[in-house]
Design a protein around this nucleic acid. Sequence first.
DNA 1: CGGCATCCCTTTTGATACTG
DNA 2: CAGTATCAAAAGGGATGCCG
Lengths: 118, 118
Amino acid sequence: MTPTPTHTEGTETEPLDACPALAAVDEIGTKWRLIVLHVLLDGEKRFNELEQETGGSSSTLSRVLKELEDSGVVNRRVEDRPLATYYSLSESGQELTPVFDELKRWADSNLQVSSKGD
Amino acid sequence: MTPTPTHTEGTETEPLDACPALAAVDEIGTKWRLIVLHVLLDGEKRFNELEQETGGSSSTLSRVLKELEDSGVVNRRVEDRPLATYYSLSESGQELTPVFDELKRWADSNLQVSSKGD
DNA sequence: CGGCATCCCTTTTGATACTG
DNA sequence: CAGTATCAAAAGGGATGCCG
């Protein structure tokens, strides 16, 4: 039965990008972007620090950081004095906090940190 | 995959594996997993429907579905009568709702469906 | 130190074809 | 319809080296 599925809008085109959530997934839904974003939630970091805290290589960081900058979620600030580059979350980037907050909550409830007593 | 944080555990600056959010990213933080999860949030779907609604190929769906089942976020149900397989979110999977809800909210506020024509 | 280019290996994804 | 296997292509990611 159910010849009339209410969810079938009859759209032949994949409205994947038409859905805000999917659009978001497309923008930040990759492992490294999420990792970098998460680290940045802690505050402004230098390229150097990101490498260490994320465990990613410079090439990877360089790429992801640029993607994130392009997406407008990350801000880059160059300091002349000590001559250092600082990365931080932009306004929209910081608004991702609740997302990570819920993710963390979910993980805490449904995932187990497993045996970390190694 | 598996970032394998082989960094020096001597510092407490990179508790990547100790962070639940990162563990979650590791479990569901991939494009296809997020897409499938999102579609499943709409309700129980057949393999067939998932292929069309996600736009993924059978091999990709098959793989991702299995990963999700393995993670315990997706449940598989085989119906004998019409002989059909139904996929749905498990308890933990459904608890991802707030995550996607926040993600959608973020996208709606910070992302714009913008120019999708060109 | 920040960042990029290059080389190269690994993972992901898709097409296609085939089976139950 | 559901699901798998194989193969080839693409993207991801790391190591190294180099330059500002």
